[in-house]
């Protein structure tokens, strides 16, 4: 295919990605270096029957004029990155120089919004991904051994947690685990504690969100692993059996090695998806006890009075950085593979 035809074919797609993915990434970088204009203050003298008072007021017209002249705000360098709402360098160095042990450091760091979100995002990503894959793999093994006519309906129901809108799925679970819902009230009976609420403590909230994550992520691993199981060579399995391998050994030394390439793919996709965890926090109204990087950006943008574009942009840049770090192993491998071929 000539260069010309290639670019003619790919042009619309490329244009859409450049305009609406590459440029916005550039735009958040630029925006994060700026900060909103301070309000223009004027001092006016207010003279009434009881004498004169000096009063400071916001000059709306001047503020607006400034806003219109420079819609991005004023240049702030890396200031936004290091402020209390993001990397909080000052606070962090203070915490490390003045603390009462590791637990205290963790507790104090958790009070900083960025680190609070980062800790939940990372814990969620690195717990949900392996658990979801393990659950999916177990379901695939179980489904693989049942009669054929049962497989269709079981796959149908297994797909539901994954297919359903994340916000809708988390709301459905949230209403059930509510103290007034079916699971919540039964848990209260079970533990004989009428005040038990899964939203009460950070730990329980985290556990709830992680359970939701595993519930919604397992079906994807299940489907991929199930398809992979169909391609396990039966000769190898049989010879393993003749050599006296037990059922577990056959899974461990034949099936799992065969599925490793698939597992890498599943892990990659799930890491990407889990790292952007966002809807469950809205659905479970969990923001008091658990926030994520995506949620922090959403919260900055949602402000009704003043939207904090710069703060959102700085968090976005840090998130993009996190994604690239997460993807680095894959990118390096793709690069090496290609160079070996070339």
């Amino acid at each position: 295919m000539t260069h010309k035809t290639f670019f003619a074919f790919i042009f619309p797609s490329l244009l859409a990605m450049i305009l609406f993915i590459a440029l916005p990434i550039g735009s958040i970088v630029v925006q994060s270096l700026h900060v909103e204009h301070p309000r223009v203050l004027v001092e006016v003298e207010n003279c009434g029957p009881f004498g004169c008072e000096r009063e400071t007021r916001v000059d709306t017209a001047a503020t607006q004029a400034l806003q219109e002249a420079q819609p991005m705000g004023q240049f702030n360098g890396l200031g936004t990155y290091f402020d209390r709402r993001h990397l909080a360098t000052e606070e962090v160095s203070r915490i490390f120089s003045d603390n009462e042990g590791v637990a205290d450091i963790a507790r104090q760091m958790y009070n900083l919004p960025f680190y609070k979100a980062l800790s939940f995002t990372l814990v969620y990503t690195f717990i949900v991904t392996p658990l979801g894959m393990a659950l999916g793999f177990s379901i695939a093994l179980a489904v693989n051994s049942i009669p054929r006519f049962l497989k269709g309906p079981i796959i149908f129901f297994s797909l539901l947690p994954m297919i359903v809108t994340p916000l809708v799925g988390s709301l459905i679970l949230f209403w059930m685990i509510n103290t007034q819902g079916v699971i919540g009230s039964n848990l209260q009976l079970l533990f004989d504690d009428p005040d038990l609420s899964l939203r009460a403590s950070p730990l329980l909230t985290w556990v709830t969100l992680i359970v939701y994550g595993v519930w919604s992520m397992a079906p994807f691993s299940f489907v991929v692993f199930y398809a992979g199981l169909q391609t396990v060579p039966s000769d190898t399995l049989e010879s393993a059996k003749i050599d006296g391998a037990s059922r577990w050994e056959r899974i461990r030394y034949v099936v799992i090695p065969h599925l490793i390439p698939l597992a890498t793919f599943v892990a990659l996709v799930q890491l990407m998806d889990n790292f952007r965890v966002f809807e469950p926090i809205v659905g479970f109204s969990a923001e008091a006890n658990a926030t994520s990087l995506s949620w922090n950006i959403f919260n900055d943008l949602r402000g009704q009075v003043d939207q904090q574009y710069s703060s959102a942009a700085a968090t976005s840049v840090l998130t993009v950085f996190g994604v690239v770090v997460l993807l680095m192993p894959v990118l390096v491998r793709l690069w090496r593979d290609f160079n070996r071929k070339a």
Binding site: P24, G26, S27, F275, R276, D300, Q307, Y309, S316
Partner: peptide, 13 residues
């Protein structure tokens, strides 16, 4: 892999 909300914050302004 980009979280969608990071892109949205680039579009808004």
């Amino acid at each position: 892999a980009m979280p969608h909300i990071t892109l949205v914050s680039g579009y808004m302004l």
